[in-house]
Design a protein around this nucleic acid. Structure first.
Lengths: 121, 121
DNA sequence: CTGATCTACAACCATTTGGTTGTACAATAC
DNA sequence: GTATTGTACAACCAAATGGTTGTAGATCAG
């Protein structure tokens, strides 16, 4: 039975830091949702928000560095697409926390079960 | 059939920003994992990391503001526990992105299906 | 009571972040 | 050809972040 396995890799995990950091902004989450649903050029995205083109460009760069998005040059435009793998990685991370939670719950259940045994002859 | 429903609530969602921001740090994720698995006092947590007590205290505060953790005073100690609801909220958010992805996939499937219909008499 | 422990909070500092404007260049349109 | 569009990138700025030290208040142990 595995008892303790909280941080298999101790040390800064910059990739995951970047992943959640990228998700920690409303504009970036909105961009991610849009490019996940369909294709957008950077300027097409920029037209949607009340901020400069450069600002949107930076947001896309943050998403790209976090592997949540990919860019591909098409003519003079840069097409942005959602990257499913990046998303799944984030989801997987949160699922691990859910697992830890359930492990704790079952450990508590085990303790209760041991109490029951003690009551038996 | 729902076609477009990317941002039902336009505007800064500071709660979700805080949620992912809180998750975007290795130390905080480690703290979260530990207090999700069991109980820790703030000083008990502080003993685990190569940084000052005040720094850990701040990390716990960030997790608390993000509703990922709760604190409860017990004697002179402050007990930190994982908050399952906060975690589920984050997971739910990523599940929504997964949904958007699948909607896009099925929309593409629909287009292909329409092509098939055109081929039929 | 005295001393040790646990916590809270302020002040400070370096770095990062989220935004701006401006410049430069490649690809398209006319 | 020239003009326009889409992008990249630098320089700058205010605010937030992640860390420090120091001070002060509660609570517990002897």
């Amino acid at each position: 039975m595995v008892v303790d396995q909280l941080s298999p890799t101790p040390g800064k995990d910059v990739d995951i830091d970047r992943l959640f950091q990228a998700l920690a902004d409303t504009t970036r989450r909105d961009i991610l949702a849009r490019v996940t649903a369909g294709e957008y050029s950077v300027s097409g995205l920029a037209a949607l928000y009340a901020m400069s083109f450069a600002a949107v460009q930076k947001h896309v760069a943050v998403l790209e560095r976090a592997s949540l998005v990919t860019k591909e040059k098409r003519g003079r435009e840069q097409i942005v697409r959602g990257n499913h793998d990046g998303l799944q990685k984030a989801r997987h991370l949160l699922d691990q926390f859910e697992m830890i939670w359930r492990q704790r719950a079952s450990r508590i259940a085990d303790i209760l079960a041991e109490d029951d045994e003690r009551d038996l002859p």
